[in-house]
Amino acid sequence: MSSPNPAIACRLEAARAVVHDAACLAMSMRPPPGGPAGKQKAAQDWLTETDGAVEAFIAERMKALFPDDGFQGEEGGVARAGQLRWVVDPIDGTSNYARGRSRWCVSLGLLDGDDPIAGVIEAPALGEVYTALRGHGAFLNGKRIQASPVTDPASAMIEMGWSNRVPKPVFMEKIDAIMDLGAMPRSGGSGALALADVACGRLDGYIEIVINLWDVAAALPLLAEAGARVSPFLRTGGLTGPATILAANPHIADALSKAVSIPLE
């Protein structure tokens, strides 16, 4: 294996430190367990004070470290253009975070043009940090990860993300298709962590009909390096707006793709 590009490797290490500090900030602002803290942007679409604070913290730190790099955030949009572009979801799983639950993360991905090349996902309440650099592996807490070896869809665990932007019949059609395969459906409330779960083998697949770049930017290098198969999210509109994603372990990917009518790369 060749040595990583020093400039990109340096950026990944810096991103790990920045995301860790941002995760600590989010933990310090974390609501106690109970009814949701924050406000709704739409039905079941939550926004907390922490989302804005964490995004601003990461934006400021990355600008100071790499002033020529582009930056895009869920809350602030594209703040700077650049060949290298950081894409952040300050709190992925805000509905969980707003209730004091543990399944949420800070997600920061790096794109080179249209190519996702590195990512960091930290879930501080779970004590987990995912990192990936294209061509140099995917890791959970420093240990290399790979997609699940499950070959039988009837033994598979598949998560499907819910969105109020998806008509109920469409959602139920995909859930029915998953269950018709004999797979076990799940829904956990964080797209980035679900994709990371596919990368490390905790899930055999993840589907979301409408999801945004900031939800998946850090996970795409993880999936590629862990050997998962993924739908062409970026080529089907994901760079500029919401699109559909399917990620799966390579052994059940074709069967799942056929069942839910979502093509893979």
Results as ranks from 00 to 15, higher is better:
232 P>D: 15
253 A>L: 07
124 P>R: 04
81 A>K: 14
25 L>V: 06
205 G>D: 09
260 V>Q: 03
215 D>N: 15
137 G>R: 05
94 T>A: 00
223 L>S: 08
49 E>N: 05
202 R>Y: 03
141 N>W: 03
133 L>Y: 08
114 D>G: 07
190 S>T: 03
107 S>G: 04
86 W>L: 05
175 I>K: 12
8 I>A: 08
76 G>Y: 14
119 G>I: 03
154 A>F: 08
61 R>Y: 01
208 E>M: 14
209 I>Y: 11
217 A>M: 07
252 I>Y: 09
226 A>G: 02
261 S>P: 00
203 L>W: 07
10 C>A: 14
6 P>T: 12
180 D>Y: 07
4 P>Y: 12
68 D>G: 02
128 E>A: 12
253 A>W: 10
158 I>S: 09
80 R>Q: 11
158 I>W: 06
114 D>A: 13
258 K>P: 01
166 V>L: 07
92 D>G: 00
154 A>I: 08
99 R>C: 14
184 M>E: 15
168 K>D: 10
4 P>M: 14
167 P>D: 09
11 R>H: 03
198 V>W: 08
110 L>E: 02
215 D>M: 08
121 I>M: 09
131 T>E: 12
182 G>M: 11
232 P>C: 12
2 S>A: 14
120 V>A: 07
60 E>Q: 13
230 V>C: 13
11 R>A: 11
94 T>I: 06
164 N>M: 14
224 A>T: 12
201 G>E: 02
112 D>W: 02
114 D>Q: 12
59 A>W: 01
203 L>G: 05
26 A>W: 02
34 G>I: 06
143 K>A: 12
30 R>G: 01
83 Q>I: 02
96 N>A: 11
47 L>D: 05
19 V>S: 09
223 L>E: 01
265 E>C: 10
51 D>R: 09
186 R>I: 11
257 S>D: 11
249 N>Q: 09
250 P>G: 10
192 A>P: 00
113 G>F: 03
243 A>F: 08
8 I>W: 10
172 M>V: 13
113 G>Q: 03
237 G>V: 03
214 W>M: 04
124 P>D: 04
55 E>R: 08
54 V>S: 12
135 G>A: 04
70 G>N: 05
99 R>K: 14
144 R>K: 12
48 T>G: 13
37 A>P: 00
133 L>S: 09
18 V>N: 06
23 A>G: 15
20 H>I: 10
84 L>T: 03
63 K>E: 13
142 G>S: 02
40 Q>R: 13
40 Q>M: 14
137 G>P: 09
171 F>P: 01
222 L>R: 09
229 R>M: 15
29 M>C: 05
216 V>N: 06
85 R>K: 14
121 I>F: 06
104 W>Q: 06
89 D>A: 02
152 D>T: 11
121 I>S: 04
54 V>Y: 08
204 D>T: 06
122 E>S: 05
122 E>W: 01
201 G>A: 04
125 A>N: 00
56 A>Q: 11
2 S>L: 12
137 G>W: 00
256 L>R: 01
198 V>P: 04
9 A>S: 14
33 P>W: 05
107 S>A: 15
221 P>H: 00
164 N>F: 13
16 R>C: 12
242 P>Y: 04
42 A>S: 15
